[in-house]
Design a protein around this nucleic acid. Structure first.
Lengths: 225, 225
DNA sequence: TCGGACGTCCCCCGCGCGGGGGACCTGGTT
DNA sequence: AACCAGGTCCCCCGCGCGGGGGACGTCCGA
C-alpha cells in the first residue's frame, strides 16, 4: 500500500530535494507540490493525501495556520508534519496544540524524513530531539506540583487534612463523619486553619486551596483516546 | 571522543544483546551492566557514564525510581534513557517529570537505539513515536481551555458574572458593592445560580467554578499544573 | 397587545458557620 | 517531675447565608 504525500514549501529547490528523497521509496508517492499555505489547505482538501509536509514559513498562510485549518476539518484524515529551519518554542507549542503529527528541523537526515512520514501515516508522532528536550522540561513544570506556600507549614497534619475536605466543599458535619470525630472538633480545626492562614471564612479557604493546588482542580489524569 | 554507557536490565540476555549492538560502534563503550535499579544508581554515581539505559521493570528499585534518584543528584551529569516493553501512560509522565532524556520501547530497531544514545549524550531527548502521539494530545488538552459544562448555559450573563465573584470568595455585600446594586439583588442572583447549577451553597459554587476553569486558578499559559 | 425573561429590590425565618471562651487526654521533651 | 503541642469535645453568641415568598420595572418577541 502506497502512501501519498503533499509537499508545501515556498522554495522550489527544497521541494524538489524532498521529492527526490521520496522518489527513492517505492511506497511513497508525492502527489502535489505547493508553494504557500493557502494552496496547501486547498490541495489537502481535494487530494486527501496521507501526509502533508508543511514548511512553517510560507507566503499567504504560514504552516501553523495551515495546520490548524487542515486539522480543524474532521473530514480530513491527512496527518501533518511541520518543518522548520529554526526551532522556536512558540511554534512548537502552537503546532502541537493544533495536533500536528510531527515537528522536525530541516537539518533532518533524508532517511529520517522518510521514516517520519511513515510514522505520521500510521498515526504516531515524532518530534525533533532538540525540541523534545525543551518540551520535556516544559511538560515537567506543567506537571510539577505548584510551589507550596510557606504558611502551609504552620498547619498540623490533621489541619491540612481538614483543609483538604473543606476545599472539597464538605460541611463541618460531613467532615466530622468522614474523620469519625465530633463536629465540634472539626470546628476547632477549621478555626485554627483559618487563623493560621489568615483566611476569613471557609469560602476563602476553598479558593486558597484550589489556587495553591491543594486539590486536583483538574485531574492531571490520563485520558487516553 | 567516546561515549560511555551503563546498561541496567534484569534480563541478562537483553543486556548482552544491547551490548552487542553498542559494540558495533567504535565510539560507544559499555562500561557497566547491572541487573537492578539500586545497582544502577550506585554505578552511575561512581562511574559517571554519559548515558544510562534503564529498563523500567527491575528488581529492588524500578527504572523510574532509579531515574529520579540519578537526576535528583546534581553531581550526576549522566543522561537517562528509559526502556520499556509496554508504553503505559503513567510511566511516561513520571519519566518525563523526572527529566529522562528518552522514553523508548524495546521494539526499537538496534540502529535507533544507537542513535538514541548519541542524542541523549548531546543533551537532546527523544520519545518513542507511539508515545509522542499521546503526549501531544495530552499536552494539547493541558493547554486547551477546559470544556464548559452545558448547564452553564442556563445562567444569564449577570448570573455568570456573580458566579465569578462568588468564586473569587467575595461575600454578597462585597459583590453588591462591586456591581453597584443592593445586596438583596446579589442574594437573588446567587440563589438562582445555586438552583440552576444544582449546588448546595456558595462553597460548592466556589469549588465548581475552580474545577470548571471559570476562574484562572493559575495562568494556563506558561505554567499550569 | 400580552406574555415572559431578566434584573432589581424587599420581607421573614432557620441554620450553618466562625469567634470567644474552657476542658481533658495523649505523647514526647525538658 | 513539669511542660507543651496536638487532638478531641463542649458552651454561648452573633451574623452571613440560603430558601420561601412577593413586587416592580424594562425589553423583546409572539
Amino acid at each position: 500500500m502506497t502512501l501519498t504525500v503533499l509537499l508545501a514549501d515556498d522554495h522550489a529547490m527544497l521541494r524538489s530535494g524532498m521529492r527526490a528523497i521520496f522518489d527513492t521509496q517505492p511506497d511513497l508517492r508525492c502527489v502535489a507540490e505547493v508553494a504557500d499555505g493557502r494552496a496547501a489547505v486547498a490541495e489537502v482538501a481535494s487530494l486527501r493525501p496521507d501526509v502533508a509536509v508543511l514548511d512553517i514559513r510560507m507566503p499567504k498562510l504560514d504552516g501553523l495556520a495551515a495546520t490548524e485549518m487542515i486539522l480543524a476539518d474532521p473530514a480530513n484524515r491527512t496527518k501533518v508534519l511541520l518543518l522548520t529551519t529554526y526551532d522556536t518554542d512558540e511554534y512548537v507549542y502552537r503546532a502541537l496544540n493544533a495536533g500536528a503529527s510531527g515537528f522536525l528541523l530541516k537539518s533532518l537526515p533524508p532517511e529520517e524524513l522518510i521514516s517520519a512520514v511513515r510514522v505520521a501515516a500510521r498515526g504516531d508522532a515524532l518530534i525533533d530531539p532538540s525540541v523534545t528536550q525543551r518540551l520535556i522540561a516544559r511538560f515537567a513544570v506543567s506537571l510539577a506540583p505548584p510551589p507550596t506556600p510557606p504558611e502551609l507549614d504552620l498547619l498540623t497534619a490533621r489541619e491540612r487534612e481538614v483543609l483538604q475536605l473543606v476545599a472539597a466543599a464538605y460541611s463541618n458535619a460531613e467532615i466530622a463523619a468522614q474523620l469519625h470525630v465530633g463536629d465540634e472538633t472539626v470546628k476547632t480545626h477549621v478555626s485554627r486553619v483559618l487563623a493560621k492562614l489568615g483566611l476569613r471564612d471557609r469560602v476563602h479557604a476553598v479558593a486558597y486551596a484550589h489556587i495553591n493546588g491543594l486539590v486536583q482542580t483538574r485531574p492531571p489524569g490520563v485520558q487516553r483516546r
